[in-house]
């Protein structure tokens, strides 16, 4: 039983981590809370549905196109909304409100174009999972877990080693100084949106396959992803992933003992404990 609960926690945590990592990457560079990230995940899941189920493209081609679309979509959001607001010297609170507005707008657009009923991307047949140390897990869930770990390492090396990653960290650290040495902050904001949203694309694809599609899926995902990111240390991508796993484990082990209706309560109690006792999160730096 323990192993099954462990796997359940791992699956839940991996899904949260997929959402939290892109969100956290954008936050770490741009320093504002991009709630519409959840809707970007939902939009990309629907785009995969459009390419694969409606247009009948090859699945892998559809996946690649979806990820490219997600990156482009993120870039577009930054360009036509956030950049304009920053130009007008909008504060982070205004950007936050704009992002909530965008979240609702995108969900409504999905509702308008695709309708309210559940959509499924019928690529994977429903079948019994694989037995693994007494626990059952499906191949897709293994892919989800591996993807989140691979992302953890890739993002870690990307921010530490690559040129863009370093520049993004420089902007995150001190925008003015970074601009003095010739790094364009706006360019780095764009990059963080492209990469963060492409990760949202991966999340959208995997979550869409695992949980099916509904217009409001983005809100639920970003609430848990955001909680995971706060627990792990907002602004630290590896932290966000760790926090998400911690969240997944505590929820699933928690409701083994408590009634399942307390699942969200457990998540938010952990959030409050962290906010009170360690507001910078597991891996965050104290300012």
């Amino acid at each position: 039983m323990f192993s099954q609960l462990f796997i359940n926690g791992l699956i839940a945590g991996a899904i949260y981590a997929l959402v939290a990592s892109g969100f956290s990457l954008i936050y770490s560079t741009c320093k504002f809370i991009h709630f519409a990230h959840g809707a970007v995940v939902a939009v990309t899941a629907y785009i995969l549905y459009l390419f694969f189920s409606l247009l009948g493209l090859n699945f892998w081609l559809a996946v690649i196109l979806t990820i490219i679309f997600a990156g482009f979509f993120g870039w577009l959001i930054n360009k036509i909304l956030y950049k304009k607001l920053r130009k007008r010297k909008a504060s982070n609170v205004i950007l936050l409100i704009a992002s909530v507005g965008l979240l609702i707008l995108l969900e409504s657009l999905i509702l308008l174009f695709f309708g309210a009923d559940v959509k499924t991307i019928g690529f994977i047949k429903i079948a019994k999972g694989l037995e693994f140390l007494g626990a059952i897990i499906t191949p897709l869930q293994i892919v989800i877990i591996i993807s989140s770990f691979v992302l953890l390492f890739l993002l870690f090396f990307f921010t530490k080693k690559s040129k863009i990653g370093k520049a993004m960290r420089a902007v995150a650290d001190n925008r003015d100084v970074a601009e003095i040495v010739g790094i364009s902050a706006e360019k780095m904001f764009s990059w963080s949106f492209i990469i963060g949203s492409a990760i949202a694309g991966i999340a959208g694809i995997l979550v869409g396959l695992e949980q099916n599609l509904e217009p409001t899926m983005g809100t639920n995902l970003i609430i848990k992803g955001f909680t995971g990111a706060i627990i792990g240390g907002i602004g630290s991508v590896p932290g966000a992933i760790l926090g998400s796993f911690l969240l997944g484990f505590s929820e699933n082990f928690g409701i083994w003992f408590l009634p399942s209706g307390y699942k969200d309560a457990i998540a938010f109690i952990i959030l409050f404990v962290f906010l009170l006792a360690r507001p910078q999160g597991i891996l965050g730096r104290k300012k």
């Binding site: 039983m1 359940n8 929820e251 399942s260 209706g261 699942k263």
Partner: peptide
């Protein structure tokens, strides 16, 4: 008897409890 939060998408732990 297991309750779940309206709108949930992950029922694995509820079902693990029921399976037991």
């Amino acid at each position: 008897a297991e309750e779940y939060i309206f709108g949930a998408t992950d029922f694995r732990t509820n079902l693990t409890k029921i399976k037991a």
